[in-house]
Amino acid sequence: MKIKIINKSTHDVPHYETLASAGMDLRANLSEPRVLKPLERSIVGTGLFIELPVGYEAQVRPRSGLAAKKGITVLNAPGTVDADYRGEIGVILVNLSNEEFVIQNGERIAQLVIAKHERAEWEEVEELSSTERGSGGFGSTGTK
Rank of each mutant, 00 (worst) to 15 (best):
E124G: 04
L93D: 01
V94M: 09
A110Y: 07
E123Q: 11
L128G: 06
N98F: 07
A110Q: 03
H117P: 03
R86W: 06
K116S: 08
V113I: 15
E126Q: 14
I92E: 01
E121I: 12
W122P: 02
N98V: 01
F101M: 04
E132Q: 12
E107C: 02
E132M: 10
E127A: 15
N98Q: 14
S97E: 09
G79V: 09
V125S: 08
H117V: 14
Y85A: 05
R108D: 08
G87R: 03
E99N: 14
Y85P: 04
L96Q: 05
D84G: 10
V81S: 05
S130V: 14
G87W: 03
E88G: 05
E123D: 11
E107A: 15
V102Y: 05
L128H: 14
A110G: 02
N105M: 03
G79Q: 07
L128A: 14
V91A: 06
I103H: 10
R119L: 13
G90F: 01
E121W: 07
I103N: 05
E107P: 00
S129A: 15
R108E: 13
L128S: 14
E124W: 08
D82A: 04
I89P: 07
V91T: 11
E123P: 00
N95P: 03
A110M: 06
V81L: 08
D82E: 11
N105S: 14
T80I: 14
L128F: 15
E88A: 07
S130P: 03
F101A: 01
T80N: 06
D82F: 02
N98W: 02
L93P: 01
A83M: 05
F101S: 00
E124I: 14
V91I: 12
V91P: 01
E124K: 15
G90T: 11
G87E: 14
E118G: 06
T80G: 09
N105D: 15
E100S: 13
E99C: 02
Q111T: 09
W122K: 13
E107D: 15
A110T: 09
N98A: 09
E100T: 08
W122G: 03
G87C: 06
S130I: 12
A115N: 13
A120I: 07
D84K: 02
R108C: 04
E100D: 15
D82N: 07
D84M: 06
G87N: 10
V91G: 06
V91D: 00
I103G: 02
I103A: 06
